[in-house]
Simulated scan of single mutants.
Amino acid sequence: MKSIQDALYNWLSIKIVADARPDDLSAQETFAFFQQMLEQDFSVKEVSVTKDEMSYTVSYKIDHQEETKRFPVELIECMYEQIKQEPEKFRNYPSA
């Protein structure tokens, strides 16, 4: 992934799912993958997320420089909304 914007979008989208479904091993593993990508590929540190009615704001540091990106709520929550609407397609499978 070449863009930090894309990496943050994917990280935040799966974070919403992983936070809502702590027993979903796939969501937890995918979140960890994107977390590692942010840290190793983009040197992102100290990530925080805030939400208002319209958007999520992700604040983070790269080389001690604080930066922010905003994402529309409906875009970020799209994956989780689909899971809620069709839960039979997104079952949790227990770890072995």
Results as ranks from 00 to 15, higher is better:
residue 30 T to E: 10
residue 31 F to A: 07
residue 31 F to L: 14
residue 33 F to R: 10
residue 33 F to E: 14
residue 33 F to T: 13
residue 34 F to S: 00
residue 35 Q to M: 05
residue 36 Q to C: 13
residue 36 Q to N: 15
residue 36 Q to E: 15
residue 36 Q to A: 15
residue 36 Q to T: 15
residue 36 Q to D: 15
residue 37 M to H: 05
residue 38 L to K: 03
residue 39 E to D: 06
residue 39 E to Q: 08
residue 39 E to P: 00
residue 41 D to R: 01
residue 42 F to H: 05
residue 42 F to N: 06
residue 43 S to D: 08
residue 44 V to E: 01
residue 44 V to D: 01
residue 44 V to I: 03
residue 45 K to R: 12
residue 45 K to D: 03
residue 47 V to G: 03
residue 48 S to R: 09
residue 49 V to P: 03
residue 49 V to R: 00
residue 50 T to E: 05
residue 50 T to P: 01
residue 52 D to S: 09
residue 52 D to N: 11
residue 52 D to F: 01
residue 52 D to L: 05
residue 53 E to I: 07
residue 54 M to R: 07
residue 55 S to G: 07
residue 55 S to W: 03
residue 55 S to K: 11
residue 57 T to P: 12
residue 58 V to K: 00
residue 59 S to N: 15
residue 60 Y to W: 02
residue 61 K to E: 11
residue 61 K to P: 03
residue 61 K to S: 09
residue 61 K to G: 03
residue 62 I to R: 04
residue 63 D to F: 09
residue 63 D to N: 15
residue 64 H to T: 07
residue 64 H to W: 01
residue 65 Q to S: 08
residue 65 Q to Y: 06
residue 65 Q to V: 10
residue 65 Q to P: 02
residue 67 E to K: 14
residue 68 T to K: 09
residue 68 T to I: 05
residue 69 K to Q: 15
residue 69 K to P: 05
residue 70 R to C: 13
residue 70 R to H: 11
residue 71 F to G: 12
residue 71 F to L: 12
residue 72 P to K: 08
residue 72 P to R: 06
residue 73 V to A: 11
residue 74 E to P: 04
residue 75 L to C: 11
residue 76 I to S: 09
residue 76 I to R: 02
residue 76 I to N: 07
residue 76 I to T: 08
residue 77 E to M: 10
residue 80 Y to G: 10
residue 81 E to Q: 13
residue 81 E to K: 12
residue 81 E to T: 11
residue 82 Q to A: 13
residue 83 I to Q: 12
residue 83 I to E: 12
residue 83 I to P: 10
